[in-house]
């Protein structure tokens, strides 16, 4: 287990290296730059600006300096577009926001999705089951960028219940809609998957044995069926986390939460090299950490997986 974790942690290094080198050259090879504007700067000024940011040196030297600064000083460099702010500042300010509603969104996905799936499986082929399945298909087809405007339309414009955007220090009213908009389609996916695996487990021989022993239904479900039924859901959460991180870029932009997604899009427009690279690294690390956590959880639950690690 320990060895496995260590091995996984070691793969993060080549992954990040590929990401950094690839994105670095991709961005630099594209025409234009953070300091090209409608009215070109005088050559002398331009020279000074480039020197200030170390951009007068050859590309591989810049890349090396960049990596060195991260490794030794944990410094992701100054922002090229937002004067007087470093990438570290921007992340320190925006990341907690994204993380907060992301967390609540994940809670929403699991706390609603799993029980929905279980209820649908237990009341198989009932009206509950059909409503749930219909709902699941429905919300898989409404991605967050269609759902979010509809939510704002209902909760803000029609009923005036919730604020249509902003953050305000993370009061709960400001978290509700981003969390729901981000999570709904994955909640539906989780519900559908849980339903399927629960049905499968309930038909398994060991459940029949438990029934034959005369155990009460409650014990059968909670003690025997739940754990194996949740395994496929866990594997599904890996890609879900990746998509939720991706989706958070959109949520940040649409709800103006002040999270890092907005900085990322702004950075793309203004060719803010260091900002884009820094945030790309952050997003990848987050993906990686969540996946590792999930795999370890999986191993903890499933003895078969544990012994193979």
């Amino acid at each position: 287990m320990f060895n496995y974790t260590l091995r996984r942690l070691l793969t993060v290094i080549p992954t990040l290296l590929v990401l950094i080198v690839f994105s670095f050259y991709l961005m630099r090879l594209a025409p234009g730059g953070p300091f090209t504007s409608e009215k070109p700067l005088p050559p002398a000024v331009m020279q000074n600006v480039l020197e200030r940011y170390g951009m007068d040196q050859p590309l591989y030297v810049q890349l090396w300096t960049y990596i060195k600064n991260i490794v030794f000083h944990f410094d992701f460099g100054p922002s090229f577009a937002q004067k007087d702010r470093t990438v570290n500042d921007v992340i320190a300010q925006g990341f907690p926001v994204t993380l907060t509603y992301g967390f609540w969104s994940a809670v929403f996905v699991l706390v609603l999705g799993i029980p929905l799936g279980i209820v649908a499986a237990l009341r198989h082929n009932s009206i509950w089951d059909y409503t749930m399945t219909g709902l699941a298909i429905f919300s898989q087809i409404f991605p967050n960028f269609v759902l979010a405007p509809i939510l704002v339309l209902l909760f803000t414009l029609s009923w005036g219940l919730l604020p249509g955007g902003g953050w305000n220090g993370g009061q709960w009213e400001y978290i509700v809609m981003p969390a729901i908009a981000l999570g709904t389609s994955y909640m539906a996916g989780v519900a559908r998957l849980t339903r399927g695996s629960m049905l499968e487990v309930l038909n398994a021989p060991f459940i029949l044995t438990a029934r034959a022993k005369g155990l009460p239904e409650r014990v059968i479900i909670w003690r025997h069926a739940l754990k194996p039924a949740l395994l496929p859901t866990l594997t599904y959460m890996g890609p879900v986390f990746v998509y939720m991180i991706t989706g958070s870029v959109f949520i940040d932009v649409f709800f103006s939460t002040g999270g890092i997604g907005q900085d990322f899009i702004d950075g793309a427009y203004s060719r803010d090299y260091s900002m884009l690279l820094g945030l790309a690294i952050l997003y990848s690390l987050l993906t990686f950490a969540l996946n590792l956590m999930l795999d370890l959880l999986y191993a903890w639950i499933d003895p078969k997986v544990r012994s193979s690690l």
């Binding site: 990401l19 961005m27 990746v242 060719r271 884009l276 993906t287």
Partner: peptide, 20 residues
């Protein structure tokens, strides 16, 4: 493949579109 799927695709997508 393993490296690639651990990079959130939107990052790459946005950067490419904005630059090219």
């Amino acid at each position: 493949y393993t490296i690639w799927i651990s990079i959130p695709y939107i990052i790459f997508f946005v950067v490419w579109q904005a630059f090219f």
